[in-house]
Write a protein that binds this DNA or RNA. Sequence first.
RNA 1: UCCGGUGUCGUCCAAUGGCAGGACAGCGGACUUUGAAUCCGCGAAUCAUGGUUCGAAUCCAUGCGCCGGAGCCA
Length: 570
Amino acid sequence: MSDAKTTREDEGQPGNFVADRVRADLAADAKQGRLVTRFPPEPNGYLHIGHAKSICLNFGLAALAPQGQCNLRFDDTNPEVESPEYVEAIRRDIRWLGFDWGDNEFYASDYFQQLYDWAEQLVEKGLAYVDSRSLEEIRETRGDFHRPGVDSPHRDRSVAENLDLLRKMKAGELPEGSAVLRAKIDMQSKDLKLRDPLMYRIKKVHHHRTGDAWNIYPMYDWAHGQSDAIEGVTYSVCSLEFVNHRPLYNWFLKALEIPNPPEQIEFGRLNLSYTVLSKRKLLQLVEEKHVAGWDDPRMPTVAGMRRRGFTPESIRAFADRIGVSKNDGVVDVGHLEYALREHLNETSPRVMGVLRPLELVITNWPEGKVFEAELDNLPGNESAGTRKVPFGGRVFVEQDDFLEEAPKKWWRLAPGNEVRLRGAALVTVNEVVKDDAGQVVQLKCTWDPASEGGNAADGRKVRGTIHWVSAEHAVDAEVRLYDRLFADEDPSKDFLDALNPDSLEVLTGCKLEPSVGAMEPGTRVQLERIGYFVTDSEDHQPGGPAVLNRTITLKDSWAKLAKKMGVGGK
RNA sequence: UCCGGUGUCGUCCAAUGGCAGGACAGCGGACUUUGAAUCCGCGAAUCAUGGUUCGAAUCCAUGCGCCGGAGCCA
């Protein structure tokens, strides 16, 4: 809530080269007052953080003017790999991210007839022809980076013959693979995309929206720009790998004499360290069960991040902050984590929970006494109020918060070390109880009866403050500790080998503050001194089993210090 | 090797011929009933070479690096 942040958000207009261009066009009224963008997913996989960047960009651009509009268009031109399940998931994820496309939901398949009519037009103009050769022959005669292509023997078929053949393709009278429709451009072009690109291929495949109406389906290049044109899109924003397609994009629009054609603008798609963002790889992780599904909390999918406990705000802030450019860089995942912690810190109520319990008994605690500690729900934000947490003479503390031999600068539990149990009492360990194996199983302490609430009556300073949960009142929980899915900063090559073997640790018998047991699924909290958690959307039930997912740890400067000093402990 | 894109602190993004700036990360300190947050401070970059210019990250030339392109995928 600092002024600095407020200022940043007020300035919040996207400052990037695409927005600059849109603003310039707006100022010059270069687009007849129109401002239309679109987000065009293919429904063949779940949306991921890279898509989120694109969504933020496209909806953000549309928000640059009151008349701005961002369409959701499903690019469903390849029915073999697409399905309604993905359509649903995509809609859900965009909505969750906080964007609204209103009535502007479209499908490339809605335009199949228009596309086909246009194709016949191009044939009639002598700008397209049916090539009746095999895939192999077409590939071989396309040439390569060094050799020009060779004209197809069918390149100069008559308009009548082409039309007849195209209609036969459409009618399903020709077998798959026997013919394609090609744009007649230039087999000698240095730009391979312009060497008579394919417009239609025969696929006798059921489409999830058009059923069996079509035996031919348009290729991306033939469908995309024309779909943009039909929708009146002004800026067709796509990622860098499509730069090579722009001449073709423009060629089709020109050949069809589309007035005020859409304009393709490319930007660098997101790459994130310790993450893979390729649909193929994500699909493989799901299908081979390296993760539990598309919404596994370790996945960089929007669904996974949601289940992990991310907030839409943090994802949007991340997208704003990394900016948009034509550089093909790799954003350190630390940027994302920072945005996450930043928002969670402002919004997640604090509760206490002990992941690996160690019993602590206060030997001089009055028999039967229960003290109600009053703690801030959101320190620094009084409007969030306080809560009462019961404290008895027997509590659980974190095993990591006790060290029998305290290193330098260790302010937590150790024999003879006075420590504050947050909001409750000052205690000192007198006796360490071990089992036969030598494991510490209990700490016997005394407390300063004048320290109720956690402050010493004489004002002496106690540096260490630790969290606790009353044994008598604790709620048992399962806690899933998620970590990065990949151990390598760049997992792109052998990504399966790069999987982090410790990306999930499931803890049972964790002890939580009683209030957590009543929480609804999908509730975010901070477990003080540990990290941010969310009650699992599938497995947590209020009053039933408590299941928490760790969203992200708190920053841990002790761990850093300890590492530097070469000592153990948390 | 051909075509296209792109080179600015460790990372991401600005600077649109006029003081190279911000964020993240790092480091140091203050504060702290979360070793969190917050606050203060520090270090850190124009791919190279030549040219134009009073002045170049920016314009020109040459070279180099990285990314993409030869699917009936999107």
